[in-house]
Each structure stands twice: as structure tokens, then as C-alpha cells.
Amino acid sequence: MNASPTNILLVEDDPNDALLLERAFRKAGLLYPLNIVRDGDQAVDFLQGTGKYKDRVRYPLPRLMLLDLKLPRRSGHEVLKWVRSRPGLKRLPVIVLTSSSEPRDIVAAYDEGTNSYLVKPSNAELLTQMVSQLEKYWLTLNEGPELSL
């Protein structure tokens, strides 16, 4: 294994959803460090290492971002567009994880450059299954790009 980061950035404003996702990772037996931010502005701060996320050792660039769409301050759509516009970040694998299955949101998210779109499962069991499959594909099988800032 090289020194590439293993952490996942979760952008999620609902503390229950965040807690349940953490539990799902535990249940699936996965030990990835999970960084959680609560709104779109914090996500941007985290990714560019500004504000309270200056410490790159504590807050390294993630290998994967799980992004909710409906967020305070800056929506998931805006965060996604911002990421895709930054030279060092634009290839960051992003998975939209939202409760919206509205065709409008799905189409917009792909247009903005998401790598995948997942609808939050309605129960904890399915969530654990989803996390497990997500890890197998995106963090084990998938070859990620080099990121820098």
C-alpha cells in the first residue's frame, strides 16, 4: 500500500443519517476514517484546506466524497460544480448520496460531473449492504486519480 489517503469525506447535514452511515460502515466491518462536514461551505473549506480544516494531517484530501444534495449554505450541486472547476480536485471521485430520486436532481448531478448517484436506502439493513458494495467497488476495485491542491 502506498501513502495515498484512505479517508472518506461525508457531506451530510442530517446528524441521524451521518450516525447511521457510520454505523453501517462499522456493521460492514470497514475501518475507513470518515470525515463528516455539515454543509456545503464546510465541504469546500475541507477540500481546499482552509478555515478550521487547515491541518492537512488531520484533514487530508479524501479518496472519495459522499455528497448529499440538499445542504445548508451551499447545495450539493454547487459543491459538485465547484469541485469539478478546481484543477487539483476535479477528478475526485464523488458519489451523490441523497434521498431525492427526482429525475431533475439525477440529471443535474450527472451533468455536473458526479461519478455515481445513490439514493439513501429506506432501512438500515439495505444501508449496510450498500456501504459494503460501495466500498468493494469504489475503494477496492476502482483505481482513483492522484489529487493535489
Binding site: 441521524n16 443519517d17 454505523r23 441523497t98 434521498s99 431525492s100 427526482e102 429506506s122 432501512n123 438500515a124
Partner: peptide, 25 residues
């Protein structure tokens, strides 16, 4: 309205479901 239903009504329900299942497990 539909967006609200799909997002804001489902979210707390997901919480209730998740934690009652977590309790059970």
C-alpha cells in the same frame, strides 16, 4: 411540494427506522 415530500418527510422516517433497527440488532 414533491421535493419536500421526497426529502424532508423521508429523512426523519429513515432516522426512526435506522435507530429502531439498530436497537433491535
Amino acid at each position: 411540494f414533491a421535493y419536500t415530500v421526497s426529502h424532508d418527510l423521508k429523512a426523519p422516517l429513515r432516522g426512526i427506522q435506522g435507530f429502531s433497527q439498530a436497537l433491535l440488532e
